[in-house]
């Protein structure tokens, strides 16, 4: 019994020593020579992770399926994540080459107003 206790205690000590031993420095990744003026050692890995998580949530918020949102975020580089984060709602999102119906009607009526065929808008003045 006493022996067993000692064994457990020494195992614990060894594992704790392992935890507190200095973590071996990792290799620096390729993008560390690309970001000018940024010190990779000081780059915050936690912040990068959080930004990625933010972008994933923004994608999901805009209707992307959760599984796909994770895979889409995984294919973006840290630099791209930084460019996207918080700007997804403002960046150009290219969709249709067809004018929306309402916009089309607005422009059509604007032209007919100016031609004097209609008088829908208070601010137009006919050319006639």
């Amino acid at each position: 019994m006493k022996f067993a206790k000692r064994l457990v205690a020494s195992a614990l000590v060894v594992s704790m020593l392992g935890l507190t031993a200095p973590v071996q420095a990792a290799m620096l990744p390729t993008d560390s020579v690309l970001s000018v003026g940024q010190n990779p050692q000081q780059r915050d890995a936690v912040a990068a992770f959080m930004a990625r998580e933010d972008v994933r949530q923004q994608l999901q918020h805009l209707g992307v399926d959760p599984q796909q949102a994770s895979e889409r975020v995984a294919a973006l580089s840290d630099a791209e994540i930084a460019d996207l984060n918080g700007k997804i709602a403002d960046l150009p999102a290219a969709g249709s080459d067809v004018l929306g119906v309402l916009l089309f009607l607005f422009i059509l009526l604007l032209v007919t107003d100016i031609l004097g065929l209609t008088k829908v808008f208070p601010f137009t003045r006919s050319v006639r």
């Binding site: 796909q68 973006l76 791209e80």
Partner: peptide, 22 residues
């Protein structure tokens, strides 16, 4: 599903790059 953003009814430049990598 890899590039379209339903909430924006379109796709973003950076996501076209990412999808190509996939």
């Amino acid at each position: 599903p890899q590039v379209f953003l339903p909430g924006r009814q379109g796709a973003l430049n950076l996501e076209l790059l990412a999808a190509s990598r996939r």
